[in-house]
Design a protein around this nucleic acid. Structure first.
Lengths: 176, 176
DNA sequence: ACCTGAACACCGTTCAAGT
DNA sequence: ACCTGAACACCGTTCAAGT
């Protein structure tokens, strides 16, 4: 029986498979090892702990973040950009859990950040204010996404409640 | 050796003690039992599982949410109200984790929700729009609080980065 | 009747033993 | 030298046994 060989890319791919299929709670070192056809100890040959594994997955995913569509005029570019970002995260609830838990800081997201900041500066918005707007919209994004598992302060009273995505887009437009 | 007697209020009090002292991760059924001077099985006499325990704690805390100061004019009342809310959550990071994880839905927060909605309607804002603004500001609150463990898309580039609380208040003012 | 010790089925992580 | 079985120290939860 040959001893198994696998590297970080394979581990990350397996981890993402498990995350997409069964969520953050299912991504166990043991489940990951089983998926790779080995025991938990072997995973630690390539990854120093679960924390680092999550960080690696986040960095891997950051490279797939949707970049803004430069063919749109600035304001629409921002709105469309954040909408796509909503869909990106919305399709991966485990990623929201990961960010909300604050266990991950991906610097691989900086190209997108730079693009969005540049677009903000194309509006009448000043450099420093652009930074604040950027941070606010990101906070709004994760806040709305967290509420997707509907939790706090339920206010679906007045009229038919808006879809979470619609609410986010509405808020982005209002904020800009 | 007399068998221990304790009820839900005592359990909730002990749970909050542990949460305030050592955070969400430290609130273990076993740690809770130890704090109460007994074994883990005994906790299950009064609480059916950890999930319910967290819900009970959230409901308990919801009654302490800061109500808006009616002596202020509407707009300032909203800004001051959400600022106090920020401080309330900011002082209890574990509560943010709890909400962000979406494991809890406290209807005990409705008095505050009703008050804030009523205040919103005192402005030129319509009933339905008020609901959207309310939900947006709550999402913004939890989003900013999640970023307090500084994680995603770090943009502390331009100038000295704003304090998280200042950013939140600034965003609330801009949004209203 | 009420309480709880001990066990079950899981974790992440380590380390000595195997190849 | 590289890999991994088996163990350690934890979890939440249950249930039979104790009072």
């Amino acid at each position: 029986m040959p001893r198994h060989i696998f590297d970080r890319p394979q581990i990350i791919a397996a981890a993402r498979r498990i995350l997409d299929a069964d969520g953050l709670g299912a991504l166990t070192i043991r489940a990951l090892a089983a998926d790779l056809g080995t025991g938990p100890a072997s995973v630690y040959r390539h990854v120093s702990n679960r924390q680092e594994l999550l960080q690696l997955v986040a960095d891997d995913l950051a490279q797939e973040l949707p970049m803004p569509d430069m063919s749109l005029e600035p304001r629409n570019r921002l709105i469309a950009g954040w909408s796509e970002l909503y869909d990106f995260f919305g399709a991966r609830p485990w990623l929201v859990e990961l960010l909300a838990a604050g266990e991950v800081v991906s610097d691989h997201a900086s190209p997108l950040a730079a693009a969005q900041l540049a677009t903000l500066e194309e509006l009448d918005i000043g450099r420093e204010e652009a930074g604040r707007v950027y941070q606010s919209l990101n906070a709004l994004l994760i806040g709305v996404l967290c509420s997707s598992h509907p939790y706090a302060h339920g206010v679906r009273s007045h009229g038919e409640s808006m879809d979470r995505r619609e609410l986010f887009v509405w808020a982005v437009e209002r904020f800009l």
